[in-house]
Design a protein around this nucleic acid. Structure first.
Ligand SMILES: [Mn+2]
Ligand SMILES: [Mn+2]
Ligand SMILES: [Zn+2]
Ligand SMILES: [Zn+2]
Lengths: 138, 138
DNA sequence: TCAATAAATGCACTTCCATTGCATTGCCCT
DNA sequence: AGGGCAATGCAATGGAAGTGCATTTATTGA
């Protein structure tokens, strides 16, 4: 367990107080997090700063953005061994229509798809919607 | 080739002039269509009416909405033999990052995914992003 | 150390699209 | 014709992403 500030530095991010708080908040969360989630968690923080913090994290491959179709972007930490620099870590996401939470299913990779001639895929987004384990009572 | 008005009626939709125009516009289009696309095609039409027309079509399973991650919703006619009423017709969509167009790959179904215990999937959205056949020059 | 420089932050504002409220119009049926 | 409901048009709202710019904070190097 490397210290947060060292980790951010290793990614080329200056570890400001705000960034450390946001990073640790993301690290604690088991589910994908919205900008508003973070805004509510740190009442003193300005939305724009948080927004730009997330964009910085995304650019430096510390988090990935998740579009689960809810209309609100969510963010989650990238996995430890994730080789985001080369190729996106194409796991799928599950969005619970009951509790509204979205989680990374990092074990479930997006299967390879054979596309018609002429189509070249560079990225993929697979979101399953339904009832999550907590909501299905199991 | 059934007449448009008869078709809409068969779906429980009153075939107004506006609705027929929108339907035929969608039928002609090879790619998924935005509200603004339609608005531009019929300068006289009001955006709200077109919006509600699409919602009606969606509810009656004449079109399906496509969230390709571009931030703008798109719509495409459902397939002829599509049994949308029972279960969503889970084909994938391809979004070209060059020309911005999104097309239904109705032949390419979303593969079945084994989920962890407790997760129950009811819907799925798979969007591949990259270069389309027209833009790859092939 | 201290001034110069660069990076991060905070506030206000904009933009874009989806969505709604409400008054009006048009259609259908008796 | 007239009552009633569905469809339409216009105006306004809402939610979220994103930008401009001034201010504060950190870093650098003379
Ligand atoms: Mn994820
Ligand atoms: Mn489609
Ligand atoms: Zn849930
Ligand atoms: Zn293209």
């Amino acid at each position: 367990m490397i210290a947060s500030d060292k980790f951010l530095e290793s990614k080329g991010i200056r570890p400001t107080a705000m960034r450390l708080l946001v990073f640790q908040h993301l690290a604690k969360s088991k589910v994908a997090t919205t900008l508003s989630d973070i805004e509510n968690a740190f009442a003193k923080a300005d939305r724009t700063t948080l927004f730009r913090t997330l964009k910085t994290f995304e650019q430096k491959r510390v988090v990935h953005q998740i579009d689960d179709g809810s209309g609100i972007m969510k963010y989650a930490l990238c996995e430890e061994g994730c080789n985001c620099e080369l190729e996106r870590d194409l796991h799928l996401h599950f969005h619970c229509t009951n509790c509204g939470e979205t989680i990374c299913l990092t074990e479930q990779k997006i299967p390879h798809i054979n596309l018609p001639d002429g189509f070249v895929a560079e990225d993929a987004n697979l979101v399953l919607k339904g009832i999550c384990d907590k909501c299905s009572g199991q």
